[in-house]
């Protein structure tokens, strides 16, 4: 994929000239806050929306030119729960199979396997409106898989699920890769999910990919722990002095009036830092020690926590989408 861009209404730049590659058989995760452009990217790749510009290829098929062939080899599990709730789970699955030209006998066999895999076999003949949120998510998964796609797009597969159900879904996803060798392209704004599940992660923010690599590679970018310190009267203190006094400190940034200190062995340097700051007349009101995680990687790269902007961005984004649709 090269230079993929989507501009809504000629004014809102949702995805900005991104280029990356996903390898066959891997679980690739797109991590970023809501409104970062994850879903837009997925929807461009699955032919649902038309890229403003850029080039993409899926298994050799060119996006925009061979959409029908692309549609044959991809499966989509969208963010919203979109199974028809006036039909039963089984009816939904069989209908989905017929859309992909899977014959009835094959579809039946596959449906049985997949339903068993996600523990939904017993509920298959119930109307979907009687399902719980977790059950509906699992049904969506089965529906996305019934035609045995080569690439499966999972858009926030565990959005709004409780911890146990989320762990279960992760297990299914891992199973899928193991048993069917499917390439999985997923989006998430859960750090833990990306860390646990993905072979490689692209961190996306404001429509741009800001980092790409394995979870380990990304975490290695941090070069240590992060200490977040809320402080008063910082004015007469030069933060550049800190690394000179304590050699473990790699970097000091001021983010929203907070000190963000990157350091090795945070447990040991933390008391020293507080001492020095107090000596210099800086009043420390609270501290937080953060161990390397993708959350910290995002913080390190953008200076923001992923969750802080999440609510705001998603509301803004939805308003924009609504406006766009009306036109």
């Amino acid at each position: 994929m090269e230079g993929l861009t989507k501009i809504y209404n000629g004014e809102v730049l949702a995805v900005d000239n991104i280029s990356f590659e996903v390898y066959e058989g891997e679980i690739f995760g797109f991590l970023g806050p809501n409104g970062a452009g994850k879903t837009t990217t997925i929807n461009m790749l699955n032919t649902l929306i038309k890229p403003t510009k850029g080039y993409a290829e899926l298994y050799g098929y060119v996006l925009g030119k061979e959409d029908d062939k692309i549609r044959r080899i991809i499966g989509l599990v969208p963010q919203e729960l979109t199974a028809d709730d006036e039909l039963t789970g089984y009816e939904n699955i069989m209908l989905q199979a017929s859309l992909y030209g899977v014959d009835k006998t094959t579809a039946k066999k596959r449906a049985e396997d997949l339903l068993n895999m996600v523990d939904l076999y017993d509920a298959a003949n119930r109307l979907v409106k009687t399902y719980s949120g977790g059950m509906r998510r699992r049904l969506e998964l089965v529906m996305g898989l019934i035609h045995y796609p080569k690439i499966l797009f999972l858009d926030e597969p565990t959005l709004g699920l409780d911890v146990q159900t989320r762990a279960k879904i992760w297990e299914y996803i891992r199973n899928l890769r193991k048993e069917y060798g499917i390439t999985i392209f997923m989006t998430t704004h859960y750090m833990e999910e990306a860390d646990q599940l993905c072979d490689r992660i692209g961190i996306i923010d404001k429509g741009k990919i800001i980092a790409l690599g394995t979870p380990r590679e990304l975490k290695n970018m941090l070069k240590g722990d992060i200490i977040l310190a809320e402080v008063n009267n910082l004015n007469n203190f030069d933060t550049k002095e800190l690394p000179k006094i304590i050699s473990e400190i790699k970097d000091v940034k001021v983010v929203d009036g907070k000190l963000a200190i990157t350091t090795e062995r945070g447990e040991n340097t933390l008391p020293k830092i507080i001492n020095i700051l107090t000596e210099k007349g800086v009043n420390v009101t609270s501290v937080e020690l953060l161990k390397p995680s993708l959350e910290q990687v995002f913080l390190y790269l953008t200076g923001r926590k992923i969750r802080e902007e999440e609510a705001l961005d998603s509301i803004k984004m939805r308003a924009i989408m609504r406006r766009r649709r009306r036109m």
Binding site: L48, D68, P78, E80, D84
Partner: peptide, 13 residues
Amino acid sequence: RLGYLSRLLVAPI
């Protein structure tokens, strides 16, 4: 509105 159309649009029909 309910997103089922997306399902149909990504299908090779």
